[in-house]
Every structure is written in C-alpha cells, then in structure tokens.
Lab assay of single mutants.
Amino acid sequence: NQESVVAAVLIPINTALTVGMMTTRVVSPTGIPAEDIPRLISMQVNQVVPMGTTLMPDMVKGYAP
C-alpha cells in the first residue's frame, strides 16, 4: 500500500508547505504520494487543510501529478 501525504497540523489557506506540516499515512482514497514531499515544500495550499486531512493534488497550487 502506498503512503499518501497527510496534514500533520492545521494548514491555513495560502500557506507555503514545510516538512513539519506534512506526515504520511496509508489512506483511502490515496492522495499525493509520500515521495512527492520534496516537491511540495514551498508550494501553497489553496484551501484550509485540517489536521489529518489527506492532501489531494487539487489542494496544492501548481502541483501536477
């Protein structure tokens, strides 16, 4: 099972992602793959992401799977 990126904290809208904001977990449905965390650093979320929420591609500005 592939791990997906999950919010480790509440991430406010338009916040640039940092390593500490993200964790990984096997979830269903799957979100952004864990191995993409290095690509996500400094990208901004386009909505509020509650802690424990799986990051989906459409939540991150400029992210393309």
Results as ranks from 00 to 15, higher is better:
residue 48 V to A: 12
residue 16 A to C: 04
residue 47 Q to S: 14
residue 49 V to W: 01
residue 49 V to Q: 01
residue 46 N to Y: 03
residue 41 I to A: 08
residue 15 T to H: 13
residue 30 T to V: 15
residue 16 A to H: 14
residue 56 M to K: 10
residue 25 R to L: 06
residue 3 E to T: 04
residue 49 V to N: 01
residue 9 V to G: 10
residue 39 R to I: 12
residue 61 K to M: 13
residue 64 A to D: 09
residue 13 I to E: 14
residue 63 Y to D: 04
residue 5 V to A: 13
residue 4 S to H: 02
residue 1 N to K: 02
residue 9 V to R: 12
residue 18 T to L: 10
residue 37 I to L: 07
residue 12 P to V: 04
residue 3 E to S: 04
residue 62 G to R: 04
residue 56 M to Y: 09
residue 30 T to E: 15
residue 36 D to M: 15
residue 15 T to E: 10
residue 45 V to H: 00
residue 51 M to E: 15
residue 61 K to T: 06
residue 31 G to D: 01
residue 59 M to K: 04
residue 40 L to M: 06
residue 39 R to D: 03
residue 62 G to C: 08
residue 20 G to F: 09
residue 60 V to Q: 00
residue 23 T to C: 03
residue 45 V to N: 02
residue 8 A to Q: 09
residue 32 I to F: 10
residue 11 I to R: 00
residue 41 I to K: 08
residue 14 N to M: 09
residue 3 E to H: 06
residue 2 Q to P: 09
residue 45 V to F: 01
residue 46 N to M: 08
residue 60 V to P: 01
residue 21 M to N: 09
residue 21 M to C: 03
residue 29 P to G: 04
residue 6 V to F: 02
residue 59 M to C: 03
residue 33 P to E: 03
residue 54 T to S: 05
residue 54 T to I: 07
residue 32 I to H: 01
residue 32 I to K: 00
residue 38 P to E: 10
residue 16 A to E: 12
residue 65 P to K: 09
residue 27 V to H: 07
residue 63 Y to Q: 10
residue 34 A to I: 06
residue 11 I to W: 00
residue 24 T to D: 03
residue 47 Q to M: 13
residue 65 P to H: 12
residue 17 L to F: 02
residue 34 A to Y: 05
residue 22 M to R: 01
residue 53 T to V: 10
residue 18 T to W: 04
residue 11 I to L: 13
residue 26 V to R: 02
residue 1 N to T: 14
residue 47 Q to A: 06
residue 61 K to F: 07
residue 54 T to W: 02
residue 47 Q to D: 08
residue 45 V to T: 11
residue 20 G to T: 14
residue 11 I to H: 00
residue 12 P to I: 03
residue 39 R to E: 03
residue 65 P to F: 02
residue 64 A to I: 08
residue 27 V to L: 06
residue 43 M to P: 00
residue 37 I to G: 12
residue 46 N to G: 13
residue 26 V to D: 15
residue 13 I to A: 09
residue 12 P to A: 15
residue 40 L to D: 00
residue 43 M to W: 07
residue 58 D to E: 13
residue 54 T to F: 03
residue 53 T to E: 07
residue 9 V to N: 07
residue 46 N to Q: 08
residue 8 A to K: 09
residue 35 E to S: 07
residue 41 I to R: 12
